[in-house]
Amino acid sequence: MTDTPARLLNLLSLLQTPREWPGSELAERLAVSPRTIRRDIDRLRDLGYPVEATLGAVGGYRLVAGTAMPPLLLDDEEAVAIAVGLRAGAGHAIEGVEEASVRALAKLEQVLPARLRHRVSILQNATIPLTRGDGATVTPATLTALAGAVTAREKLRFGYRAGDGTETKRLVEPYRLVSTGHRWYLVAYDLGREDWRTFRVDRVTDPLATGARFTPRELPAGDAATFMAQRMARTQSEFDLDVEFAAPAEAVAGRLPAHLVPAADPADPDRCLLRARVTDSVEWLALRLTLMDVDFTVHGPEPLVAYVRKLSGRLARALPDTAG
Rank of each mutant, 00 (worst) to 15 (best):
residue 179 S to K: 02
residue 180 T to S: 12
residue 180 T to K: 00
residue 180 T to F: 04
residue 183 R to F: 03
residue 183 R to P: 03
residue 184 W to D: 12
residue 184 W to M: 06
residue 185 Y to F: 11
residue 187 V to I: 14
residue 188 A to M: 13
residue 188 A to F: 13
residue 188 A to T: 15
residue 191 L to E: 15
residue 191 L to M: 14
residue 193 R to K: 14
residue 194 E to D: 15
residue 195 D to V: 05
residue 201 V to K: 01
residue 201 V to L: 07
residue 202 D to Y: 03
residue 202 D to I: 07
residue 203 R to N: 10
residue 203 R to I: 14
residue 204 V to I: 14
residue 207 P to E: 13
residue 207 P to I: 13
residue 208 L to M: 03
residue 209 A to W: 02
residue 209 A to H: 00
residue 210 T to D: 04
residue 211 G to W: 04
residue 212 A to K: 13
residue 213 R to K: 10
residue 216 P to D: 15
residue 217 R to F: 07
residue 221 A to T: 14
residue 222 G to F: 06
residue 222 G to K: 09
residue 222 G to R: 04
residue 223 D to E: 14
residue 223 D to P: 08
residue 226 T to C: 03
residue 229 A to E: 12
residue 230 Q to S: 04
residue 231 R to T: 07
residue 231 R to K: 07
residue 231 R to Y: 05
residue 232 M to N: 07
residue 233 A to G: 11
residue 234 R to D: 12
residue 234 R to K: 10
residue 240 D to A: 12
residue 240 D to W: 02
residue 241 L to D: 08
residue 241 L to V: 11
residue 242 D to F: 09
residue 242 D to P: 08
residue 243 V to P: 08
residue 244 E to P: 00
residue 245 F to Q: 03
residue 246 A to K: 00
residue 246 A to H: 01
residue 247 A to E: 02
residue 249 A to Q: 11
residue 249 A to P: 14
residue 250 E to I: 12
residue 251 A to I: 11
residue 252 V to G: 08
residue 252 V to P: 07
residue 252 V to K: 08
residue 253 A to F: 02
residue 255 R to C: 06
residue 255 R to T: 10
residue 255 R to M: 05
residue 258 A to I: 09
residue 258 A to S: 09
residue 259 H to N: 02
residue 259 H to Y: 01
residue 261 V to T: 10
residue 262 P to E: 08
residue 263 A to R: 07
residue 263 A to S: 15
residue 265 D to W: 04
residue 267 A to K: 09
residue 270 D to Y: 02
residue 271 R to N: 11
residue 271 R to W: 04
residue 271 R to G: 03
residue 272 C to H: 02
residue 272 C to W: 01
residue 272 C to F: 00
residue 273 L to D: 12
residue 273 L to R: 15
residue 274 L to P: 12
residue 275 R to G: 08
residue 275 R to T: 14
residue 276 A to Q: 02
residue 277 R to Q: 11
residue 278 V to A: 09
residue 280 D to K: 01
residue 281 S to I: 07
residue 283 E to Q: 09
residue 283 E to P: 00
residue 284 W to V: 04
residue 285 L to C: 01
residue 287 L to F: 00
residue 288 R to C: 07
residue 288 R to L: 02
residue 288 R to D: 10
residue 290 T to Q: 11
residue 293 D to A: 03
residue 294 V to E: 08
residue 294 V to L: 15
residue 294 V to I: 15
residue 295 D to H: 06
residue 297 T to K: 06
residue 297 T to L: 00
residue 297 T to V: 13
residue 298 V to G: 02
residue 299 H to E: 09
residue 299 H to Q: 10
residue 299 H to P: 03
